[in-house]
Every structure is written in C-alpha cells, then in structure tokens.
C-alpha cells in the first residue's frame, strides 16, 4: 500500500506537469479558432458574390466559435488539474461531458441550420457545398462522452481511496 501511494504521488506529479503544457496548447488552439471565426465575419456582408456563400460563412463562423469554446473548456480543465492535481472529480466529468456535447452540436447543427436559414430566405441552395454532418466531430463528441464515463468511474475509485485513508 505504501509503494502504491508513492506511485500515485509520482503519477500525479507527472500529470500536473503535463497538464500545464497541454493547457497552454489548448489555449493557443482557442485563440487560433477564435481568430479564424473573427476572420470570417467580414464575409457576412451583403456584398458577397454568391448569396449562398454568406450562409456557408455563417455555418463556418459558428463552427469556429464553438470549437474555440470547446478548446477553452479543455484548457480550463487542464489548468485545474495542474493546480489541484486531482483528475478524478465530478466537475471535470461535467466539463468533459460539455465538451462532448459541443462537438456533437458542431457535428449536426451549424450546416443544416445555415441551409434551413438560406431556404427560408428564398436563396438558391444548389451551391451549398459544406457537408451537412461532420463525421469526425460526431466521433470526437462520442469519444469525449465515453471518456467522461471512464472519468466518472475514476471519481468513484477516488472516493473509495479518500474514505479508506
């Protein structure tokens, strides 16, 4: 049991150190996606050549901002793990769930919503080229929810360990 405690402390120390670097990386990704989203905003002006292009831009802008939000949540998650060194906590499980839901939203909402908006405004949607469902974002969303389940199991083990001590 004593050797296990030493192993745990070593692993936690490594996780905390690693979390700092990962936090910085995801924070940079947040800035990257937010910048992309902000960069798309001028294309929303009515002077765009093709009307449908504005609606595709809406879809892409929303996607970039949602990705920025997901990356920001991930950065905050790793910052908290780096500060407290406790990876198995209920709030972290909730954060990972929210990230997973954000990915699922990115997968199925922006493009269909933009297409629907275009149709409601009477715009010709023949040249709407964005895929309606992002398979990769869908898979990433389900992956995050699966990781959240595993983290939830980890919180139960953590609770047992704390009560034993």
């Amino acid at each position: 049991m004593k050797q296990s405690a030493t192993d745990k402390n070593t692993i936690i120390r490594r996780l905390r150190t690693g979390s700092i670097g990962i936090c910085v990386f995801y924070f940079l990704l947040t800035i990257f996606y937010a910048e992309r989203g902000i960069g798309m905003l001028p294309n929303l002006k009515p002077e765009a050549e093709l009307e449908i292009y504005r609606y595709e831009t809406i879809s892409q802008t929303v996607t970039y901002f949602l990705m920025a939000a997901a990356m920001l949540l991930a950065a905050i998650l790793f910052l908290q793990i780096a500060r407290k060194g406790m990876p198995f906590q209920d709030q972290h499980v909730r954060t990972v769930c929210i990230i997973g839901v954000l990915f699922l939203i990115i997968a199925v909402i922006p493009a269909p919503a933009a297409l629907l908006l275009a149709k409601l405004n009477g715009v010709d949607t023949a040249m709407f080229l964005s895929p309606l469902i992002s398979i990769s974002a869908l898979l990433e969303g389900f992956l995050m929810l699966f990781i959240a389940q595993i983290l939830h199991y980890g919180t139960m083990l953590q609770l047992e360990s704390d009560e034993t001590l």
Binding site: M1, S4, D7, K8, I11, I12, R14, L15, G18, S19, I22, F78, P87, F88, I147, I150, Y153, G154, L157, Q158, E160, S161, T164
Partner: peptide, 18 residues
C-alpha cells in the same frame, strides 16, 4: 492520449487499492 495514459496509470493504482 499521452495524458490519458498517465490518467489510466493513476486509475490503475486506485483500482489496485480498491
């Protein structure tokens, strides 16, 4: 994945304790 590797090892220590 590298972070999860560390997390799984920590979880393995907790599982062993349990």
């Amino acid at each position: 994945l590298l972070f999860l590797a560390g997390l799984f090892r920590y979880g393995a220590a907790l599982q062993q304790e349990s």
